[in-house]
Write a protein that binds this DNA or RNA. Sequence first.
DNA 1: GTCTATAGCTAGATAGAC
DNA 2: GTCTATCTAGCTATAGAC
Lengths: 187, 187
Amino acid sequence: MRPQKVLDKEIVLGLTKVFRSKGYEGASLKDLADATGLKKASLYHRFPNGKKEMAEAVLTYINEWVEENVFQALLDNNTIPQVRLKNGLAQIRTLYNGGKEVCVFRALSMEAGLELFGGQVKNGMKEWITVFTKIGIELQLSPKEAEDKALQTLIKIQGSLIVTKGLNTIDIFENTLQDIEENYLKI
Amino acid sequence: MRPQKVLDKEIVLGLTKVFRSKGYEGASLKDLADATGLKKASLYHRFPNGKKEMAEAVLTYINEWVEENVFQALLDNNTIPQVRLKNGLAQIRTLYNGGKEVCVFRALSMEAGLELFGGQVKNGMKEWITVFTKIGIELQLSPKEAEDKALQTLIKIQGSLIVTKGLNTIDIFENTLQDIEENYLKI
DNA sequence: GTCTATAGCTAGATAGAC
DNA sequence: GTCTATCTAGCTATAGAC
């Protein structure tokens, strides 16, 4: 067997970059090949089901990253909830590169993408709400209040990403992260 | 001259439907032709610059609709600000069909769309903030508070649309509209 | 103003050499 | 495992009849 010219992780990183910036419909196989440093046929060797499988790999990769970084920071039992929240938000800042990068959920959920990945997007968002609900409860909110605030948090993150892109002002995302933190801690 | 088979307004409505659900990259000329009831070549007769011009017509149409409905309701001097706010939010509910429809700003602002329409998206968002700032001031907020709240409002609207789509639960959008109203009036 | 027909190209995907 | 070459289908866009 020939050695892999490009590592699996590097490939997924390249695919991620393209899908996040261009969306599912807007990402062509040429774009994906160029971004990974492989030729189209080689991409098909790695992902026999084509573009759909590539996008699935991206979703899986991002989900894992979020689990291991954002959620782990938020749920780490060795730390008090106030600090965990701060750490989790710092990971979110990294995930979206300070507001410059688009959320995969958004990038993959126009009509065609939603048809293919709607279930994964839904489950992913539910997880975010579950994790933020937990930290809300540990910050002394009632379960109902905690779930409400978790949903508001997700809405603020998603909304601030859209508005940050639209107005081309990254302060908005940064201010929103601070707003989320204060909103949890002022209680 | 032959009579128009399809009225200008009907054409723009068809184009709007396609661009909002599929995005700029995902909307093909076949989709656009089918949705308008015209053939591709006839669409080119109406829009000589092709797909780009069609999307511009959609942006113009939505901007006008928002001016004449959302903004007019919010700025109508014959009504007290509290009622204007309620009326404006009702128009927003209509604009997004209770959360079922995507915002054009979002639909047209992945990489390729943002390249073409970034300026219009930016100006559009600025207008939303300007108008909500005005009503905040009339509800006795300081200019700074009013502008902050206006930005938060835009973020909530955009975020709730994304999360509503992702979780496939329209209550989220509806609850957000109520939240926005209460958030302005509780002062 | 609308249509059929088609140009020219790029899309996603595959075959088979190395 | 990666590549060049290629297939077919679809894309955006145009020409020209009616």
